[in-house]
Design a protein around this nucleic acid. Sequence first.
DNA 1: ATGAAAGCGCTAACAC
DNA 2: GTGTTAGCGCTTTCAT
Lengths: 334, 334
Amino acid sequence: MTTIYDIAKLTGFSPTTVSKVFNGYSDVSEKTRRKILEAAQQLDYVPNAHARSLTTKRSWTIGVLFNESSGAGILHPYFGGVIEGFKKVATSKGYDLMFITKDIGGKPSGYLEHCKIRGVDGIVVILPDYDDPYFHELVEADIPCVLLDSDSEHASTIYSDNTMGSEMAVDYLYSLGHRSIAHIGGGHSFAGEKRTQGFIEAMKRRGLSPKPEFIVQGSYDFTVESGRKAMEQLLQLQDRPTAVFAAGDNLAVGAMIAMREQGVSVPEDISVIGFDDIEMAKYLTPALTTIRQNTYGLGSRAANMLIYSIEGHKELQRDMLPVELVIRDSCRPL
Amino acid sequence: MTTIYDIAKLTGFSPTTVSKVFNGYSDVSEKTRRKILEAAQQLDYVPNAHARSLTTKRSWTIGVLFNESSGAGILHPYFGGVIEGFKKVATSKGYDLMFITKDIGGKPSGYLEHCKIRGVDGIVVILPDYDDPYFHELVEADIPCVLLDSDSEHASTIYSDNTMGSEMAVDYLYSLGHRSIAHIGGGHSFAGEKRTQGFIEAMKRRGLSPKPEFIVQGSYDFTVESGRKAMEQLLQLQDRPTAVFAAGDNLAVGAMIAMREQGVSVPEDISVIGFDDIEMAKYLTPALTTIRQNTYGLGSRAANMLIYSIEGHKELQRDMLPVELVIRDSCRPL
DNA sequence: ATGAAAGCGCTAACAC
DNA sequence: GTGTTAGCGCTTTCAT
């Protein structure tokens, strides 16, 4: 392994000057710079990030944290797009991404301790687990942090305009003539609650009072299975809805399965609208009408916010991204 | 930030002894150990990974690299399961995962340089991009490395038994009475080629000579769209196959879409079998019969292999995991 | 069982 | 423009 000392020796300059070259300082003559760069190439020099971090207290590393307890997390369809967008801008600004787990070295220690040990410059939390005390400990700590799909007084946040999404869904169904609209919710989760709340408000705003039995909750991790169960419940009702708004595409998929099993056809008998626009949505039969979240946008925006914090801006930021109605084949006019 | 020196000062012991305690050395008296641990807790001490790495030349970090050029990569359905399995065993053994990109700090530098700068202990490559010279540079370097879905003389490898998978698919179709079997391939990719080759051999072994026009290639990144195009080609044939074996579930989805568009029904008119068992497979209409890859198993096995290498075992390892036929509703007996 | 000293590779004052 | 010095936090001989 070659170090700046080797380069210094070879060129006759001091380590300091060599260091300056690699850090783009302007007070190095062009001639010197060239010689040093040449020597570096010749010696196959590669800087050592650990050594640099030790002195500068900057690791150029961002911790990525996601819900490990639920089956959600990295396998959630939402995750891929978000992390992709995040990674794109973070790496373009010189940061690398590291997964942060609750445990380190096999020992339980918590997210915060893990972050401190690794010296990450900031941290992004995707789909937080509210019930996890380690999550709160982290958020309340003094590390730059941005949360997706969460509200917090201690950290910056960004999420989709869930309420507006519900509004759009109800609006679309209403415009199609539907009045008897049911809702399958995303349980006790941030997005889930916003969407259910948005649904109720949107209904009221149109003079439709949503019957309690028309609102049934799926699980907080938006599983297909829970969507199916929820729909089964709705199908038992004497007076069935003509449309259902599911708070997530997975829930909608589950609902459609439940209907198929009972010979109810979509959209002929019941219209369905989802939320997310997961990749498979357009390949379903019928293709799923849904509210699209801009996952890539959420990720890249999150990265920009976080880096802004890392660069020393202390004020909390919060942002909300618009969603979009994607009309396909799962809703019909009444 | 508190250091071992602070603990040393508080307890009256030397930094060396403090260090020994945290590294589990046995030559420290129980009393001393207890005092030091207590002081550490009191001072809220957290070790500094950078400092440690600087002296030990071990970062306890594993680089994760995936195909950035194609749309595949992190968004590929295969990725989630693999990384999940990998992360589980890697973190349980004390390693953290870091994404390694081709560029660092916005400057192009290549994977190898990036790895050296970050001082990763080893690296796992998921879905390599053969055409990338930086990939080869990395693999040929002297860093512990394990490749998924690739063959190499320079690194350890692990992948599913693709050939056997094709064999099983053909076998199943054959047992159902199908003789006229088409194949949609995964293009110029490692898994794609193995599966196509396996298909041809399996056909021959049963005395079926696969017609050239019955073999059409989708794209190397297994997109739905390319599956659809491929199927359209097959549907133009005078003499249509009674079944098609798609080298990936996404391709199968595309094929099913093409058929639906042309009023061909699955499995009544044509049977379809896929490869992967992506999550949506069971939710399709009809639910997709497919060859399941054990993605989680691939990931965890890869981690074990890599860590074995990191621990100093120089010999190359290669492993292959069995696949499994998952029978659902997309194939019918003839 | 404990400690002194040196050094990992780099940057940051500060002087020249 | 360039160099000297000190130090980031830790581990590692090697003494004692």
